[in-house]
Simulated scan of single mutants.
Amino acid sequence: MGVTSDARVVWQFLNGIAAIYKPAGYSLHRTRNTILTHLCRDLNALEGRPQREYVRIEGETDKPMTVQVVPNLADHLLLTGPHYQQKDFKLSWVNYLGYDTSGVVIIGINEGARTVMRMRESNPTRFYKVKGVFGQATDNYFTSGKIVEKATYKSIKRATVDAICASMQASHQRKMFELCGVDMQSQAAYELAIQGPIRPANNKIPMIYAIKCVAFNMPEFTLEIACINEYEMYLKTLVHQLGIQLHSVATCTQIQCFRYGLFTTELALLKKHWDVQSILDNMEQTQAILDNNKYLVEQDSPTLIEQQI
């Protein structure tokens, strides 16, 4: 969108979806309030509608009277307050990221809230980078918790970690076919698999399509996970379970959602760019991506998921 100084014109264009980058240690509700505060600030700094006027007739009724058009003081900014306030906006999100998770969040503003609902129903694949550390366990499975257990980790090898990850992935693949009621070795399973990622009917069941260790520098490690229906504690628990299966303990130290469906961190706006002009430009980019992909068509076939992970 081109630069304009008229707040009314800008308001009309604030209808669509945008991709933002939520930092860790920042709740999504606080993120929403921050974005709305910045939008209100920027809109109110632009030229708003002019103060309305009214016709005032003065003088005695038995003599010629004066007619004047004067500003309506009841419409003065000091009385009405800012023209744009947070309650004037509709803002909702597609994917929910927990307090300790950073990454891509897709938001819908005003009319974009309808698109948000359709995107939730499409339930696209999410990609995460999850970091952990071996040798310690906390009461909340995250590095911010109190250490409740320590264990040795020198015997853990990269090959063993890869084997456990492969086992987890295979277990979830079997579970997907079991939920569909088909034998994994049957022709029906093959025909089901080539249609794309299998999604459980219940959107509350977490499902992992791929999990791989991409960095291993003892005692620290990094996993890349492609999944749906996940939530923050579930990802933390995966790290905890990995430590147990390796006859040690592990704690999650960082969670980042680096891709949500068609949208990656390269498109997401950092906190310093949560302003009107940046969000309007981002809306144009996200709409172009949706248009080029036939509006929310899921691209993530099993092959593409493996390529991403």
Rank of each mutant, 00 (worst) to 15 (best):
K146E: 14
R158N: 08
Y54R: 13
A151D: 04
A159H: 12
Y153C: 01
F142V: 04
R259K: 13
E60H: 13
L91P: 04
Q68K: 15
A18M: 10
D6K: 13
N229Q: 09
V9Q: 14
K294F: 11
I305P: 02
L73S: 15
E298Q: 06
L267T: 12
G25W: 09
M176Y: 00
E230K: 05
I244N: 13
K90S: 13
A137W: 05
H273P: 09
L238F: 01
C252K: 01
H83K: 13
V67Y: 07
F258Q: 04
S92H: 11
V104H: 01
V10W: 11
Y260T: 05
P206N: 05
I211A: 00
V130E: 00
F127A: 00
Q299H: 09
P82H: 03
A113S: 14
G16N: 02
A151C: 08
N282G: 01
V69K: 10
I147L: 08
V105S: 02
T101A: 12
H76M: 01
T31L: 15
A163D: 07
W93P: 01
V239E: 01
P200D: 04
H172I: 08
Q51E: 10
L238P: 09
Y99P: 00
Q68G: 04
A193T: 05
E60P: 07
I198G: 05
Q136D: 07
S5R: 15
R56G: 10
Y295W: 12
F221E: 03
R32K: 15
D100H: 10
C180G: 05
N15C: 11
Q307A: 14
A137T: 09
R8F: 05
N44Y: 08
Y190E: 11
W11P: 12
T222C: 01
F263K: 09
F13C: 12
F263L: 14
